[in-house]
Simulated scan of single mutants.
Amino acid sequence: MLFAPSFSNPATLGQPPLRVAADPAKIDALMPPATDVSMLLVGHAHYDHLLDVPWLLQHRAPQAKVYGSRTMGHLLAGAKLPKTRIVDAESHMAVGATPGQWFYSPERHLRAMAIKAEHAPHLLGMKFLTGTYDGDLDALPRWVWQWPEGQTLAWLVDLLDEQGRPRYRIHYQDAASRPPLGLPPLLPDSQRVDVAILCAGSWSEAPGYPAVLLKRLQPRLAVIGHWEDFFGNDPRQPQVLRLLDIDQLLATVRDNLPADGQLALPVPFAQLPMPAPLPTPR
């Protein structure tokens, strides 16, 4: 499984870009092998999450299907991908207390459920690149404002045992959102969330995030992502995203973790060990 990555990092003189296009040479140089990936999950359709996905699907993860919003699907239609590889998860997402549909990997070792979420405002309560697409595009857009958010999704991911039971659970968000949006529904299996992957970008613009989410999830490990500046910078030499109060975010996460919870702030390309699975309940 792969969460939509971004390697191209376009910029205009070190500032947010106006025109955007994937950089195949940079993707191929930085992207680890992904030929075994069968599921690629997308949280929303902004260019910094979706721009590189067409090239990845065509050249780096040729066995994968991509799951996301309807707007995501309409955008990716411009890359002339087979429709069988684009899955509308928005129509089957969890909303509030109502669970959504589980999507399974071909070998049924993994499953994922989309959860209705939102994208926090970018700055001072203002949110940019809003909107949706209602029809397929003929080509991939070239201007940054042509990559609208669409419906933002969080994801609940289970690793399954040989009997198809959840043995490991991950909650993933690529955009901060105000609770209850992004919170998973309560499921009858009572499986604990082992790993929560949080979004640092604009976190302070979403009241209650991530404190309420962490109180619900009680994760054994909280991983903070989307903290690095992606406007033309080299991900091998990461810098903190501009205007991001990373220290306050770290303090907020620590204050809301369970007693056995750990915190990680990995740099790009780090290999992060996950907590070992808990014993199977008798």
Score class of each variant (00 low, 15 high):
Q173G: 08
S202A: 14
G73F: 04
E162T: 15
L13V: 01
V66N: 05
R254E: 14
D52I: 04
H119A: 12
R192I: 12
P277Y: 06
P188W: 14
F231T: 04
D36T: 11
H49K: 10
L241Y: 05
T152E: 08
A29F: 01
M113N: 12
D247Y: 01
P54M: 12
A264Y: 00
L160N: 06
P54R: 11
D138C: 09
P33K: 04
L153G: 13
K83H: 11
A270H: 08
F3V: 11
L75I: 14
Q271G: 01
F231H: 14
L50K: 01
D247K: 09
V193W: 05
S8D: 11
L217A: 05
R70D: 08
G100R: 01
Q271W: 09
P54F: 08
P188I: 12
F269K: 02
L13W: 08
A114R: 01
L81F: 02
S190F: 10
A64I: 06
C199S: 14
Q146C: 06
L110M: 15
P24D: 10
V195W: 03
R142S: 10
Q58E: 11
V20Y: 04
P210S: 13
L159K: 07
F128A: 12
T280P: 05
C199Q: 09
T35C: 08
L30E: 04
M93A: 15
P207L: 08
M1Y: 10
L198H: 00
V193N: 03
D194Q: 15
G73L: 10
K127Y: 08
G96F: 12
P62F: 07
P185N: 07
L30H: 00
A112K: 07
S190N: 12
Y209R: 00
G135K: 14
D28R: 15
L110C: 02
L30K: 01
P179E: 09
S202M: 03
E118A: 14
G43N: 08
V223H: 03
T130Q: 15
P62G: 07
A259I: 12
G73I: 00
W55L: 11
A4V: 09
P24N: 13
L57N: 02
K116T: 11
N233M: 12
G14A: 07
I27L: 10
P24V: 12
P184S: 10
V212G: 02
L41Y: 03
S8T: 15
A175K: 05
C199H: 13
P258N: 05
R236M: 06
D245A: 13
M72K: 11
V212C: 10
G68L: 01
L198P: 01
H119Q: 12
L183R: 05
W143G: 07
L81C: 00
R178E: 15
A79G: 08
G232V: 06
H44S: 03
E90N: 11
